[in-house]
Amino acid sequence: MTQLTRPALPRVPALRVLEYHLVGYRRTWRAGAFSSFLLPTLTVLGFGVGVGAYIDRGVGGVSYLEWIVGGLLASTALQVAVAESTWPVFGNLQWQKIYFGQRSSPLRVGDIVAGHLAFVLFRVLTSVIAFLLVTGVLGALRSPWAVLTVPVAALLALAVAAPTFAYAASVDSDSWLAMLFRFAVIPMTLFAGVFFPVESLPLGLRWLAYVTPLWHAVDLCRAAVLGVAPYWSVVGHLAYLAAWAAGGWLLARRVFARRLVV
């Protein structure tokens, strides 16, 4: 009798997975909070204020500090999203085997991926909101439109985290994760318009920058912080980021299914 009444799955099973990750986070949040919030703030000071003092003309009519804040916010979202989708995902498959434990419960592969992605989103959002508060206090935000950077950062997070899930679940050595940072995350951060306008890149490289999801988020966030129209169409940016997220999701689910259902 009891077997008939027991539900096969919890309601919104991915939320249970999110809950698992949040419980673990309760123990380790301090170190993480330090690196994902204080470091971007220091970057704002070091570059925006420090280096900015040497850029007399500013950039496009605004001070360097005001110009760089939107970009740093987007790159913070990128860094946190990728960091949370590389070693943790790889570790859950290879070292602690957490996913396999979840898999032997009624949870489906999609629930496991979605739950962990939701946790990544949580990490990104908390970092970005803290960043906004600090830069607001510093007076670096020119427009109230800056609040729109939060949903943009969320979309960017999904756009990079989902494909990174697929990547981290398919590599056989964690050295490949360090390679991802060296050859994708760091170059993107340095050349996709965060520190200087992409227009000053040679044409070929400029197109490479346009292809990265980061540039699209940088353009949107910068426009929101400055209260101006972005360089490119808003709908176009959002659609491009959504395409990365959707493609990444499908890929991640497929790779996870291959790894978890044997």
């Binding site: 280096v51 003309r57 060296r182 340095l190 050349f191 520190f195 200087f196 890149l201």
Partner: peptide, 20 residues
């Protein structure tokens, strides 16, 4: 590939931001 990192920083900050 470790040596590419400082090179990337040099090109981005030194040259890119340097232009400003």
């Amino acid at each position: 590939s470790g040596f590419v990192e400082p090179l990337l920083y040099l090109l981005s900050i030194g040259v890119g931001v340097g232009a400003l």
